[in-house]
Design a protein around this nucleic acid. Structure first.
Length: 482
RNA sequence: CGGGGCGUAGCGCAGCCUGGUUAGCGUACACGCUUGGGGUGCGUGUGGUCGGUGGUUCGAAUCCACUCGCCCCGACCA
């Protein structure tokens, strides 16, 4: 595989071993590393900067829709967790417990939060009295712990970072509206910022959040044909309100249980970025979430520090002033070629080369990370052209991911076809479902696939259940999931 | 947690089957010169209690037992 443009040499080829490639990219691009504790990772600055860009964008969108940030405790008393029956049953197997504090055995053990419904709802029951208190639209940025048996960098770790929104409403309609609004927010983040197309829809009962009435999700399709759940939005109905006694007095002077939602997205999104856009040379970051959007590589020839470097520095400050996240790689120890490979591995969308020839011509060379295509741009047009190129890359990445997703989504009618697809190239299988848990379970046990989403208003709608052949009120997407 | 694979220098590996000098190679790192528009070249160096514990043996990276970690395939999950 020593192809002509095979410049990055210490990464397993994506096509050869996808899992090894993924780990290589995460580690070589210095996004994260394994820690001494099993299943727990260290997010390194470059990885964290990506998360910060995602986080900041989500935070802006949350605030635009009226949400406020708050912070609730890390520990949850066991009795609180047990108030909602389905909830505790769903999370109990993966909870870490604190049993000793300050050298004393605790009277009641404390759960390290796997999610915060219990602790937040206990506070909401104190704060909600009247219809005038509603809605409550809070979000928190936090870490949670889930004792997973199998972990993978970013995709599933024992501790992870996320946001969890928790809202309280006066009516069922408002809660459903909120649930769908936040689902749409996640879609916007994924498609417009991460450049990853998603399908949205409802989860089947077996896949829904423990304690929710309805769970919606955004699902992405990864290059290995497996689906990644990248954000969830739950309509909790009155389940938690009843368990935690969250009641308000209505305008009609009646005591009513409130209606709630919760929704979350995690650092898993960073893993989704890596898998979706990366290639054999490493990471490719969509410009909108790239900590470094353009890297300037001065060509270090001869007395370059006197000739080339000053111009590179000027370009750097011009681009920075134009609002571009730019980095000047003036390291003396490395040759230009080495730097090219290094920054490609780290996924920087555009490289700006400035050398002696460019000084003469008053230009710079822009090179796209996507296709290594070069363009020669006069200094006075540089910021403008670079912005245009960044937007183009953002769009191209999305288009590429969308084309893959569409090509990997198959309309299939029978169980045999479904099984065959799962054994082969996988992907999304679009088919009918009667709604029966038996049929769903059969697909899971025999084809290792689950219903990722029940599609909202499928066009065309499937006629018959792919498993049992009976009438299919639902059209669903089956896939093998992460 | 079941099945499989792998742990030897920061990273990638050889050595192990068949126990025996001072444990090698590539790369990275440090220094010098050289070079510089796709991982420059040459030289000199630094760096390893061979994942851990215990055992067998005169002697263990090598054989045995246990254990920890990582990866893949299943069951559980964001």
């Amino acid at each position: 595989m020593a192809a002509e443009n095979d410049f990055v040499k210490d990464i397993t080829k994506k096509s050869v071993d996808f899992s090894a490639w993924y780990v290589d990219v995460v580690k070589k691009a210095e996004l994260a590393d394994y820690s001494p504790m099993k299943g727990m990772m260290v997010i390194r600055p470059y990885g964290y900067e990506i998360w910060e860009l995602i986080r900041d964008q989500l935070d802006r969108m949350f605030k635009e829709s009226g949400h406020r940030n708050a912070y609730f405790p890390l520990f949850i008393p066991e009795s609180f967790l047990q108030k909602e029956a389905e909830h505790v049953e769903g999370f109990a197997p993966e909870v870490a417990w604190v049993t000793v504090g300050g050298g004393e055995v605790l009277e009641e053990r404390l759960a390290v939060r796997p999610t915060s419904e219990a602790i937040i709802c206990s506070m909401y029951s104190k704060w909600v009295k009247s219809w005038r208190d509603l809605p409550i639209l809070y979000n928190q940025w936090a870490n949670v712990v889930r004792w997973e048996k199998v972990t993978r960098l970013f995709l599933r770790t024992t501790e992870f970072l996320w946001q969890e929104g928790h809202t309280v409403h006066a009516t069922a309609e408002e809660a459903e509206e909120e649930t769908l609004r936040m689902l749409a927010t996640y879609r916007t983040l994924a498609e417009d910022y991460l450049a990853i197309p998603v399908v949205t829809g409802r989860k089947s009962d077996s896949e829904k959040f423990a304690g929710a009435v309805r769970t919606y999700a955004i699902e992405m399709l990864m290059p290995d044909g497996k689906a990644l759940q990248a954000g969830t939005s739950h309509n909790l109905g009155q389940n938690f309100a009843k368990a935690f006694n969250i009641r308000y007095e209505s305008k009609e002077q009646k005591l009513e249980y409130a209606w709630q939602t919760s929704w979350g997205a995690t650092t898993r999104l960073v893993g989704a970025l890596v898998m979706t856009h990366g290639d054999d040379s490493g990471l490719i970051l969509p410009p909108r979430v790239a900590p470094i959007q353009a890297v300037i590589v001065p060509i270090s020839a001869g007395n370059w520090k006197e000739t080339v470097l000053p111009q590179a520095q000027k370009v750097f400050s011009d681009l920075k002033a134009a609002g571009i996240r730019v980095f000047l790689d003036d390291r003396d120890a490395y040759t230009p070629g080495w730097k090219y490979a290094d920054w490609e591995m780290r996924g920087v969308p555009v490289r700006v080369e400035i050398g002696p020839k460019d000084i003469d011509k008053q230009q710079a060379v822009l090179v796209s990370r996507l296709d290594r295509k070069k363009s020669f741009v006069p200094w006075d047009k540089l910021a403008e052209e670079l912005k245009r190129l960044l937007e183009k890359i953002q769009g191209d990445l999305y288009a590429k991911a969308l084309a893959f997703r569409d090509a990997s989504t198959h309309e299939l009618g029978t169980f045999a076809e479904l099984k065959e697809a799962m054994a082969g190239g996988r992907g999304f299988i679009r088919c009918g479902w009667c709604g029966g848990a038996d049929c769903e379970a059969k697909v899971k046990s025999e084809a290792a696939a689950t219903i990722r989403v029940i599609l909202d208003k499928p066009e065309p709608a499937a006629k018959a259940c792919a498993v049992c052949g009976k009438d299919a009120p639902h059209t669903v997407l089956f896939a093998k999931s992460y």
